[in-house]
């Protein structure tokens, strides 16, 4: 399939997947006995039956489920994600407001992960089966095995509480302020460690696999220095598969963001999501879920396209 058709096909498949995501999201929230209003009512003893009925009508919850879905989706496509029940504000405003924080955190973690993973992955592959490889393998495994919340707690307790070197982000700090880097460090490390470890392992195994191939022997037989063989020939091939893996990190970074933002009181989408769960704000839950999923799908799409670009066998 030519490149253009391939890209087109992938972009088009975005739509059915998003539909599926929206359906699943909606179903998860709405397909249980008791609707959101009864949930609110159960938390609020002054609610009378009349109040419930009124709320239901107002939020359109007295319509059949399927119709509610279409109403909701229709609104979403116009940018209306519904209302935050407790504050009566628009969900989409909330998302827009909180998004940059999460993006910054996520980006920091992602860059952190790659900066660590790529060199160490190369190193481990070159030193395969020797001491350096074993050591880095154990370190990488530790990184993966470390629960990120535990790491965050420990970092907080050591650096913020005991040593007092670090403080939680004060409210209303400008994102583009250079100080931001300081505030990003602890949460960024927390969120990035597991990703760094995973990527490093992927890098190592991709490179190790490539190094077994014939073209490497040929390159050596041509008399090229080992550095050229590794960095020019092997790396280029490994990066193809690593790129796709890097994009898939997005989902796990978002997962991690929830926990990390809670620990560090980082005002992003993750913290909002957590609060929404506690407060049973279904519109917020659905809105953030839909939004984050869309971002993830987009990243996967980009990864596929990048893969097609990088591999000449697909491109031509």
């Amino acid at each position: 399939m030519s490149l253009r058709r391939f890209i087109l096909y992938r972009i088009l498949s975005f739509i059915p997947i998003m539909v599926g995501v929206s359906v699943l999201t909606f179903a998860l929230i709405h397909l249980t006995p008791g609707d959101p209003v009864s949930l609110i009512a159960s938390g609020n003893p002054d609610f009378s039956a009349a109040d419930e009925a009124r709320l239901r009508a107002r939020y359109g919850l007295d319509e059949p489920v399927v119709q509610q879905y279409f109403t909701w989706m229709g609104n979403v496509l116009q940018g209306d994600f519904g209302i935050v029940y407790s504050t009566d504000r628009a969900v989409e405003d909330l998302i827009v407001r909180r998004l940059p924080e999460t993006i910054t955190l996520g980006l920091f973690g992602w860059v952190f992960a790659l900066l660590i993973a790529i060199p160490t992955g190369i190193y481990a592959a070159v030193r395969k089966d020797q001491l350096g490889d074993d050591f880095s393998r154990i370190v990488a495994l530790s990184g993966i095995s470390l629960p990120n919340f535990w790491l965050g707690l420990m970092l907080l307790s050591i650096f913020a509480v005991t040593l007092g070197w670090w403080n939680v982000l004060p409210p209303n700090t400008k994102l583009y302020h250079p100080d931001m880097l300081y505030y990003l460090i602890l949460p960024g490390i927390t969120i990035g460690t597991a990703s760094a470890a995973t990527m490093m392992r992927i890098m190592r195994s991709a490179m190790a696999e490539e190094m077994n191939k014939e073209y490497v022997t040929t390159a050596r037989a041509k008399g090229l220095p080992e550095r050229t063989v590794i960095l020019k020939h092997v790396l280029r091939n490994s990066l193809i598969s690593v790129t796709t893996a890097a994009a898939f990190l997005t989902a796990s970074i978002f997962s991690g963001a929830i926990v990390v933002e809670v620990i560090f009181s980082w005002p992003g989408l993750g913290l909002e999501f957590y609060d929404a769960i506690l407060l049973r704000e279904i519109n917020v839950i659905m809105g953030i879920t839909l939004f984050l999923s869309a971002v993830i799908i987009l990243m996967n799409l980009l990864a596929d396209i990048a893969y097609a670009f990088l591999d000449p066998r697909i491109r031509y």
Binding site: G20, A251, G256, V259, F273, I277, T289, I296, I297
Partner: peptide, 19 residues
Amino acid sequence: DVVFAFPALLLALVIVFQL
């Protein structure tokens, strides 16, 4: 693919929230 689109922890949270 649809399942993959969700961050795993997020999905778990929603499910526990419901169930």
